[in-house]
């Protein structure tokens, strides 16, 4: 049997024969790591088709560790069946923190007066196109400037570091877009369901699940093509309702 260091060196040799020195871009390799793992698990000979990533995995312990973590996450995710979870309105109401708030530093001009919450929501909607023009663009949607107003603390069990749900709202021709990310990323939360409920207000507040997506290995989730309405985003961990964020789109 070939020992592990020899095997890694052979892998590095084979990868190096397929790349040029000017292609040694570590950031590019890291960015392609997720795709590398996915294609590898799909049966592709990625050491030959993605030699740059293979080279870094074979020669750099940091990259090898990231690779192993992503691979384990993805395998675990593929074998996980998402549990059926009922919405607990009482628990949701108990955890509601606040409506979306607007901080003066996040808008193009300060609010003239202290607005009511309803006015804030209306103002927020009107700010969307302004933000789209003036804030950094990420993945086709805009980021909140400081992200502060859209960061929602999340009570993740057994987590020493504070965890937050960062929400980015966008507007496409087909409707609103919600892009979210759990910070910091945790590998054990890959596949945790995030549900989007539309809140039917009449005759009484009723949550209607309109979409469910799993947290991906980067802690991200997204909902698209949403009509203007009132929504609540809910994160479930171990069938416990963990994070709630109300959004009026």
């Amino acid at each position: 049997m070939i020992n592990q260091p020899d095997l890694r060196l052979i892998q590095a040799i084979m990868a190096a024969t397929r790349i040029e020195e000017h292609e040694l871009d570590r950031e590019a390799a890291e960015a392609a790591l997720g795709e590398y793992v996915e294609r590898e698990l799909a049966g592709e000979a990625v050491r030959e088709t993605m030699p740059l990533v293979a080279f870094y995995i074979a020669t750099d312990a940091d990259m090898a560790r990231q690779y192993a973590e992503l691979r384990a996450d993805l395998i675990a995710f593929e074998h996980t069946e998402l549990p059926e979870i009922a919405f607990d309105m009482a628990a949701a109401q108990a955890r509601v923190a606040r409506l979306i708030e607007i901080a003066p530093e996040d808008i193009v001009r300060p609010l003239p007066t202290t607005p009511s919450q309803e006015t804030e929501q209306d103002y927020l909607r009107r700010l969307l196109p302004v933000w789209q023009r003036s804030l950094p663009v990420y993945g086709g949607v805009f980021m909140s400037g400081t992200a502060q107003p859209l960061l929602q603390p999340v009570d993740v069990p057994d987590q020493a570091i504070p965890t937050q749900m960062d929400i980015v709202l966008g507007q496409h021709e087909t409707g609103a877009v919600i892009n979210g990310r759990l910070k910091p990323r945790r590998s054990d939360l890959v596949g945790v369901p995030v549900r989007l409920y539309r809140i039917e207000m009449q005759p009484q507040p009723t949550p209607i699940c309109v979409a469910e997506v799993p947290l991906d290995r980067f802690g991200r989730f997204a909902f698209e093509q949403l009509p203007h309405d009132r929504y609540v985003i809910v994160l479930f961990i171990e069938q416990q309702l963990i994070g709630v964020m109300w959004i009026d789109l």
């Binding site: 060196l9 052979i10 040799i13 084979m14 990868a15 190096a16 024969t17 020195e21 080279f55």
Partner: peptide
């Protein structure tokens, strides 16, 4: 990267071609 590229011809010289190296991996 440079060293790895240098080693490849040596492996070939000792009887390893590309297919064999891949088979080893």
């Amino acid at each position: 990267c440079r060293v790895a590229k240098k080693l490849y011809p040596c492996l070939v010289e000792h009887g390893y071609d590309k297919d064999q190296a891949i088979a080893i991996m």
